[in-house]
Design a protein around this nucleic acid. Structure first.
Lengths: 217, 217
DNA sequence: CCTGAAATAAGAGGAATCCCCGATTTTATT
DNA sequence: AATAAAATCGGGGATTCCTCTTATTTCAGG
């Protein structure tokens, strides 16, 4: 019988997972935690074979850092990450920091069971619904090495003007007319923003703008 | 015996809620859905007394707009919103658009049970962990937060899926890959949305999506 | 069974964007 | 004054997007 700890900031999710895990004859959920620090403390107390953990548990320490800390001190604890994010970046980081399995919250319940069975056999497991391309892995490794911590403040005055307009859906032409400059200049600003902030698509720009409150809703 | 429909984009969460609800002697979960449009279609088919729904179900129609649509057409269906957001703004909008209860995902499971019992008695219910002032309650009852869905309802299911993706900045190609259709089909959906809602630019689309809460932030 | 809406998608032509390069002028800093 | 950064714009080719037209399949309603 393997003892399982469930870590998720949402009690409902903990209940759901606990129910699923307890249905398995060789697993039992012994506890639940709602934050990274609490999870670490609970693992420290011993008796945990498998940890099923969400990556995002605001506020406070997130699942990724907790994964790293627990894996360093208690390498025997198998960590299964249960996340809503299916971007390659999250998966890579989780696996690189000590996770043995990565499954999606949107996947059928059977994925958790599969992950449990794999990790107790010492095998890694990736959600069957995750599509991984070699190109993606290359891109992550390429961009991950060049860290830019400057962020938004590294943008110039003009770039800061252009940014929200892009996020709001204005075309290069519309922006150029609004600012009385050529579309070529808009292109330049746009490219500089993407380069400085390591954003590679319009979606990235929109998300960044939203999260940094460059646009109001 | 009351029939419950559970709507959440994460299968794990649906399982957890279903488990909890089925433990109650007078409630039974009859179905689960993962998107706003699917939820509406399921309610349309009948036999649903209570709907427990997440506010955020990307991509596609979100829970708020689905609440409004279902409440307009099927006012007898009691809607319980289960959300990760505890900001007053979300609560106000949900209640103003037809929800009978609002509970937090981070609350203990007992909150769902309390909400169920209240709504079948025709009473509204707010999560006990939410701090509400009397002033806030007045604001909840004010009608400023209600959505107007004249045009939106003329969109087809597929168009409602494409719309938020466009607003979030996805390119035709990215949308086509996400939905496993050709870029030509995406173009067709896009053109139909613009025609039906009389929106002529991407900015218009984004603004409409924001004001009608088609996208979650 | 017929009709219409919905979902799918192809072609063709022109507009816009993206991506590489380089260039000039203005502004700020040292 | 010298240097650096910012802001401006262009060329050219590849890609994508827009618009309009047409067409097939499926499916629900009368």
């Amino acid at each position: 019988m393997y003892n399982v700890l469930v870590a998720d900031d949402h009690a409902i999710v903990r209940s759901g997972i606990s129910y699923l895990v307890d249905l398995q004859s060789n697993f039992t959920v012994v506890d639940g935690t709602a934050s990274g620090t609490d999870t670490y403390i609970r693992v420290e107390q011993g008796g945990i074979d498998v940890l099923i953990m969400d990556l995002s548990m605001p506020p406070g320490e997130n699942g990724l850092i907790t994964t790293r800390r627990i894996h360093d001190k208690f390498p025997k604890v198998r960590i299964i990450i249960l996340s809503m994010h299916e971007e390659q970046e999250y998966i890579n980081k989780a696996m690189a920091n000590g996770a043995m399995a990565y499954i999606l919250k949107s996947s059928p319940d059977t994925e958790i069971i599969k992950a449990l069975q794999h990790v107790i056999n010492g095998e890694k497991y990736l959600d069957a619904n995750i599509i991984v391309s070699k190109k993606d892995i290359k891109e992550i490794n390429a961009s991950g090495n060049t860290l830019n911590l400057k962020g938004y403040n590294s943008l110039s005055k003009r770039e800061k003007e252009v940014f929200p307009l892009i996020a709001l859906g204005y075309s290069n032409k519309e922006i150029s007319e609004k600012m009385f400059i050529s579309t070529k200049t808009v292109e330049a600003h746009k490219a500089n923003i993407s380069r400085k902030l390591h954003l590679h698509s319009r979606v990235d720009l929109v998300q960044y703008a939203i999260h940094h409150h460059l646009i109001d809703f």
